[in-house]
Nucleic acid binder design. Structure first.
Lengths: 242, 242
DNA sequence: TTAAGTTGTCTATGATACTAGACAACTTAA
DNA sequence: TTAAGTTGTCTAGTATCATAGACAACTTAA
């Protein structure tokens, strides 16, 4: 016993957990920031590393921090407020919260349009489509993974372009689309599958928000349709009642 | 674990101790009042009796409660304010604090006056004296043990009278003394000896306030002289600066 | 004097907390 | 590719926490 030699009746790991939580609440650690390593924390509290791990485990369980193996433990961001408007951009929403938006390209394939996809995009069934898988993050926290379909004829090499700009807004701008808006949005919920769980750094069995949406240009011409899966515990959708 | 099944990091004995301390602070137990028995406390907190004892031990160490073997555990009174005036009566001081004054006769002997005692009482050295040992309490808490010497000639059978009235004021009244006042007061401090420790229910090594005083009647004639030993942790003397 | 009720002390057992060390698995930057 | 630094997992030993039961020592009231 190092902090107090007279037994206080409060477990060491609890004192450490409270200390870290207080540090976060006081802003000594900003959301998304990396905490000191477990060894360093153990030294500052003069306590065993396992005791620190116990403390961090409880904080992680409560969603205050998130451990990434090999990298570090990060202050979990509060739930991202995601307003559902016709002209919202992911980067703007994240930036408005004082966090840094990031995009990660996963992979892309070419495939033929099903009847549903064709209807959404105003194409004929069987038309060639480019399918792009991507993850979007706020700071270090994965927010959503999305599958986007675009017309392969109108946006040739779209996959290559996206891989470099990692932003749908920039991709469209690359093809001369100066403005676009959300035409339709459908929201459901589901349980994450194994693939998305890995991409979202989410535990199996956790809920996700599934959003099907289509973007159109100023003339109303469909540009892209996509299905996004949001980690429900990291985001909350705001519906504007105007 | 009964209070919480998810480990809270706070020991059960600590939770019980906090609960009891809060009950005292909220006035659910008044100073001097007897707490429920250890078994009953254990049942209300759904905890083992030994756990309750651990909790009570810490409270006792801090002076909030006091255990009396065979009797019970009592809420320790705050320090008794003891104004040092020429006309103070123990019963009045204690009663002013909303507590019940008590007196316990211990024993008495007859002995000859030493030079010091004779001088204090205005008698000749070797004059017969009655020596009375008594304890005075506020509610259940022993406040002081005192040794009183009176002239055996002026107060015959004083011991027997005191044993029945258990009050110096009433004893003097029994002999026709309607009024008296404090003539002199000397205060020192010491460490309690074994005999007084037992009488004051005080741990060995604890400090006591030693007060030598002499009472005189309205004519200035010495009536009694005594040496009182106060449990320092239960009393504080107030000196009036008038 | 007796009986009931109280606190004090002892032994014993299992669960939890804490420390210690080692190594695996992974990430990051050089 | 390598090396350093990170989190994850395992074993092991010691101390504290909590429970359980029994009995002693003492007080109080009948």
């Amino acid at each position: 016993m190092s902090i107090q030699d007279t037994p206080s009746g409060v477990a060491l790991w609890r004192q450490v957990a409270d200390g870290i939580e207080r540090a976060i609440a006081d802003g000594r650690f900003v959301a998304g920031e990396k905490l000191p390593g477990e060894i360093e924390i153990a030294e500052t509290y003069r306590v065993n590393r396992h005791t620190v791990r116990r403390a961090l485990a409880t904080l992680a369980e409560r969603g205050l921090v998130r451990a990434e193996r090999g990298s570090g433990t990060y202050v979990e961001t509060r739930r991202l407020a995601y307003p559902l408007r016709s002209r919202t951009r992911f980067s703007e929403i994240v930036g408005a919260g004082g966090r840094e938006p990031r995009g990660q390209f996963i992979d892309s394939t070419q495939e033929d349009a099903t009847r549903e996809l064709a209807r959404e995009l105003g194409l004929k069934t069987g038309a060639p489509l480019i399918r792009i898988e991507a993850v979007r993050l706020a700071d270090r926290a994965p927010i959503c993974v999305s599958t986007t379909w675009l017309s392969a004829e109108r946006f040739p090499d779209a996959a290559k372009v996206f891989a470099s700009v990692r932003s749908m807004t920039k991709l469209l701008a690359h093809y001369g689309v100066k403005d676009f808006r959300r035409a339709s949005t459908r929201i459901t919920a589901a349980i994450v599958d194994g693939t998305d769980a890995a991409r979202l750094d989410l535990a199996l069995g956790r809920p996700i928000l599934v959003v099907d949406s289509t973007d159109v240009d100023s003339d109303g011409t469909p540009l892209a349709t996509k299905r996004s899966r949001f980690a429900a515990e990291r985001v909350e959708f705001l519906v504007e009642n105007s």
